[in-house]
Amino acid sequence: MRIGELAERTGVSTRSLRYYEQHGLLKARRGSNGYRQYTEDDVKLVSEIRALLAVGFTLEDTRPFVDCLRRGHSTGGACAESVEVYQRKLDEIDAEIRALLNRRAEVAAQLAQSCPGCFVRG
């Protein structure tokens, strides 16, 4: 399939697909006419990248998942390197949650001090 069809099937712009290729995450083959050619495996790779980006992973974070799929695993998260990225991301999210809870407590304390008797939601 050509780049336009891959873009349509995965919901990713052709510009993004070229960007993934530029960063070594997607490897296009070239047809005799010079056009990029992709396979069903590429649909799976791009879908994996897109799903990971949608939940906050960086493009570089997706690399172990893509490599795992290229090695023939049914999911990108089946390899130890991918599991490490998942665990690191969960640690980052937990740290963000703690920081947000601390900020919330500070704002609630400021509200309580500024407006005795005001209701603090949550």
Rank of each mutant, 00 (worst) to 15 (best):
T75L: 02
V55C: 10
G56V: 06
E81D: 14
L52D: 03
V107R: 13
G122F: 07
G72Y: 13
E5R: 05
H73K: 08
A51L: 03
L25T: 11
F119H: 14
S16W: 01
L90W: 09
H73M: 02
G76A: 09
S114D: 09
G4T: 08
C79P: 08
Y35N: 00
L111S: 08
D42I: 02
L45V: 14
R63A: 14
T39G: 07
V85K: 02
I3H: 02
G11S: 06
D67M: 04
S16I: 03
Q113W: 06
L101R: 15
Y20F: 13
Q87V: 12
H73W: 03
L100S: 12
M1K: 03
D94G: 07
E96P: 00
C68E: 02
I93F: 12
S82C: 10
C115R: 13
E92F: 11
H23D: 06
R70G: 05
D61A: 10
Y19M: 02
Q113A: 15
E60A: 15
P64R: 01
L53P: 06
R103T: 12
F65R: 00
V12P: 07
A7D: 02
L90I: 15
V85D: 00
R30P: 10
C118I: 09
L25C: 04
A51K: 14
C68I: 11
G72M: 03
E81Q: 08
K27D: 10
F57T: 00
A112M: 09
E92M: 10
V83L: 08
R30W: 01
L45R: 14
G117D: 04
Q37D: 13
L17W: 09
E40V: 12
P64Q: 05
Y38M: 01
E106V: 06
K44W: 07
V66G: 04
F65G: 00
S32V: 10
L111V: 15
S74W: 05
R98E: 15
G76F: 08
G72Q: 07
D41P: 03
A28M: 09
V107T: 14
D67S: 08
L25G: 07
G77L: 04
R98Y: 06
L45G: 05
A95D: 09
L25S: 07
E81F: 09
R18G: 10
A112G: 13
R29N: 12
Y20S: 00
S13P: 04
R88Y: 10
L101A: 13
K89M: 12
A95H: 11
A51C: 07
L53R: 15
L17F: 11
Y86A: 06
R50D: 09
F65I: 08
T58K: 09
L26H: 07
